[in-house]
Nucleic acid binder design. Structure first.
Length: 351
DNA sequence: AAATCGGGGTC
DNA sequence: GACCCAGATTT
């Protein structure tokens, strides 16, 4: 079975090339690493443009390490899961400062870097250094759950381990890098989540799900919980051609991005005049302001939250008295230096 | 083990 | 709308 799987998979791979900018005949570990971090939980079609921008702006790990946090976050804007960007930057600095700018060339060495977990350690160690570690990503879990008839939830850690072992068995006696590339491509292009191409699938003759009419029932996934509704009232303070942005800090969404100061509430209802003025006073030390306009509510769905955002604009009638370390007063021009969440970037572009 | 972290494409 | 993506990290 293992022999059939690998032989068939690799033949399909030869017949169906999928050019990827970072997968060249002479792979650069920096390029492989960069691509793997960017592609975590991201479709190739979405992430490739970001990869090209990063590798163009930061051609080497040294150039990435010397960049500012704001530069990195700005380039990452729109890609989501921003902890990836901060860990990418942290790892780059670590490699330059402590590893003489050389990437670890083992699975364990890579795993120790921030932002690199089991999948990325397997991917980078195999693609860049030819190490024998089978990758297990969403594609591989789905494909093997169907092919081998894995009935337990692919979200369980024990199932993940089981699939990892099956993949390792299938990988025997073939090039690790080619096998890993092939199995992910196959999962993405043939054994798709919805409407997989079973009629054209070369593995179908030995596929448990196909033979037992369970293709739509596998893989089994754990039901996810409902979204948390949140209501953000962004307060946009305008003063002499500039407006205030604030860097978001840890333990919430959009860490490291910049947003107008926001007042969170339990409903879509606009906060009271009193509460808004008190909030502004806490920010700039006075509330000598004049309301300009308020937007309607904009809804943005995240993986675990539903954000209902509203923008309330004020003009300052006196200069700000107080400030905070996270504040930046930006103009239309300088605002582009800072990474912002989608709904904030769109509001500023439209305003 | 479960929760958390974005945004976009696809059906 | 629901699902899911070259997952990792924290709780």
């Amino acid at each position: 079975m293992a022999n059939f799987f690998a032989r068939t998979l690799l033949k399909w791979h030869r017949d169906n090339p999928r050019p990827l900018p970072w997968a060249t005949t002479n792979p650069d570990p920096y390029h492989i690493w960069l691509s793997e971090i960017i592609m975590q939980q991201t479709r190739i079609e979405q992430g490739t443009a970001y990869y090209l921008r990063f590798v163009n702006k930061f051609p080497t790990v040294d150039s990435l390490a010397s960049a500012s946090t704001d530069q990195v976050m700005r380039l990452w804007q729109g890609l989501g899961y921003y902890t990836r960007a901060r860990n990418l930057h942290k790892a780059a600095k670590h490699i330059v400062e402590n590893l003489d700018s050389n990437f670890p060339d083992t699975y364990e060495g890579l795993l120790a870097l921030p932002g690199i977990g089991p999948y990325s350690a397997a991917a980078i160690s195999s693609f860049a250094f030819g190490r024998r570690h089978a990758v297990v990503d969403g594609n591989v879990k789905r494909l093997i759950a169907r092919f081998s008839g894995v009935r337990s939830s692919i979200d369980d850690a024990s199932t993940h381990l089981q699939i990892q072992q099956i993949a390792s068995t299938f990988m025997t006696d073939v090039s690790t890098a080619v096998f890993n590339q092939a199995i992910m491509n196959f999962g993405a292009l043939v054994c798709k989540p919805k409407s997989p191409l079973c009629a054209a699938c070369p593995l179908a003759t030995h596929c448990f799900a196909f033979q037992n009419n369970l293709v739509d029932a596998l893989p089994v996934r754990t039901k996810k919980k409902d979204l948390r509704e949140r209501y953000f009232h962004f307060v946009v303070l305008h003063y002499r051609g500039k407006f205030l942005l604030q860097r978001r800090v840890e333990k919430d969404i959009w860490h490291g991005l910049y947003v107008p100061p926001l007042l969170e509430s339990k409903s879509t209802r606009i906060p009271s005049h009193t509460r808004l003025h008190s909030f502004v006073h806490g920010l700039i030390g006075h509330d000598d302001i004049e309301g300009i306009e308020s937007s309607s509510t904009i809804r943005q769905l995240l993986s675990h939250q539903s954000i209902n955002g509203r923008f309330i604009h004020y003009k300052l009638l006196a200069p700000p008295i107080t400030s905070f370390e996270t504040f930046v007063w930006v103009s239309k021009k300088t605002m582009n230096q800072y990474g912002k969440p989608k709904m904030v970037a769109e509001m500023l572009n439209d305003y």
